[in-house]
Design a protein around this nucleic acid. Structure first.
Lengths: 221, 221
DNA sequence: TTTGATGTGTAACATTTGATACAAAATAAA
DNA sequence: TTTATTTTGTATCAAATGTTACACATCAAA
């Protein structure tokens, strides 16, 4: 197990032996769950750092009408809701449910604080993990602030493109990209088609060539 | 000064004397700037924790077309970009510019790490600050995922309402609320008007009465 | 009170997007 | 290869929202 979690963001850079020594100096426990089991419920207080050692879990949210809004999958070896162990309202924002047979490492908050004192690397890793999360979310919100699909596309393509090359390779399918943009797939295809019709880009499959960077930039006005 | 920053999120709970002792044990510096001065530029590496002691600064971003997007104002006594001191890409996401004559406390990253070792409270505060940020952003994204204005309104009003009372007081003007929703002001007014016409709510100024909670919840379907 | 600034209600019209459906293309699996 | 599955292009129509404009209300300052 220590070998596995040595690859997790919070134990990265620590030898499996070191991790074992560290962990054995504080209370913690291992928890095995079957698939579709509820690990934490929305609004539960978050008092443990939970690491997915084997398997995967998902965050799921119900709105007022009971509709399920899937939030995110978390695969081993990664922590669950590291950014919700601290903070003013340290409660789970979503229900956490196992996708499959899953092994969890459960470390109480007090143990985490002790580990911070014992290993500066662990502390740095933890700080990095939650900082990355905040940075990711920040980036995501900024992106969502672009109103029209064409604006989002322009922003997205310009971000991917380098200064010297006008060739861009989309890392996502249209379906995934549409989901990332928060729009429907046909709408995204239409926007792409129109950019092509206006001779701003040329798209063959996942490869996009910027024909007129100036016009692409003007879309952001 | 130590008295002032004792009210900041990262030094909260520490006595001014304690803060002074702590800070004097590590390198740091004070920086005074006039108004409209650039404190950090986008993509600069973030190597210091910067606290606004007096005055205020703003985050500003230029899009590809050169249009200025104001991001946020930060008033004393609060840290600037605490979530960007750590993390994979620890660079400022925005230009930081002073709004007025401003005093800054600049603490190098190494000093921050030393302070973590010396004061568990400071560490906890820092963890809380980043976590709060992530939680806030997370909440914001979840909210933006509601597509139509009516859905956002329903969600927003239901969140504000308590179980026993159907009376809700909006803490924002329509203009601010529209900005928060990422929509235009007339559109928001229209949506409010339609909810009123459908006898779902009653709105007088900032006070809203929920007439039919069931219908309001059904809007989220 | 008068004035000005800010907030609010509402209208007409253009634009964007969603929803749905279907076929062609590309890809993977048998 | 054949078959099935996913991905993509496109069309139509309805719904939601933006844009712009203007009148009225509210509130604070002069």
């Amino acid at each position: 197990m220590y070998h596995h979690i040595a690859n997790s963001p919070v134990f990265k850079g620590l030898a499996p032996d070191t991790i074992e020594t560290l962990l054995k100096s504080v209370p913690f426990r291992i928890k095995n769950v079957n698939e579709q089991q509820v690990i934490a419920q929305r609004e539960d207080e978050c008092v443990n750092l939970i690491l997915v050692v084997h398997g995967s879990v998902r965050g799921e949210m119900l709105d007022y009408s009971g509709k399920i809004l899937k939030v995110e999958d978390i695969y081993a070896p990664r922590p669950i809701a590291a950014a919700f162990l601290f903070g003013q309202n340290n409660r789970y924002p979503v229900d956490v449910i196992s996708n499959e047979e899953t092994t969890l490492l459960v470390i109480p908050k007090e143990s985490v604080l002790k580990l911070f004192q014992q290993s500066e690397l662990f502390l740095k890793n933890y700080l990095n993990a939650i900082s990355n999360r905040a940075q990711f979310l920040s980036q995501r919100i900024w992106f969502l602030s672009f109103k029209t699909i064409k604006e989002k596309l322009a922003q997205y393509i310009l971000n991917l493109s380098t200064k010297d090359s006008s060739r861009v390779l989309l890392p996502l399918t249209q379906k995934e990209l549409a989901e990332y943009f928060g729009v429907t797939r046909p709408s995204l295809a239409r926007a792409l088609g129109e950019l092509e019709k206006d001779q701003i880009i040329e798209a063959k499959g996942k490869e996009i060539v910027i024909l007129n960077r100036t016009l692409l930039i003007q879309l952001l006005n």
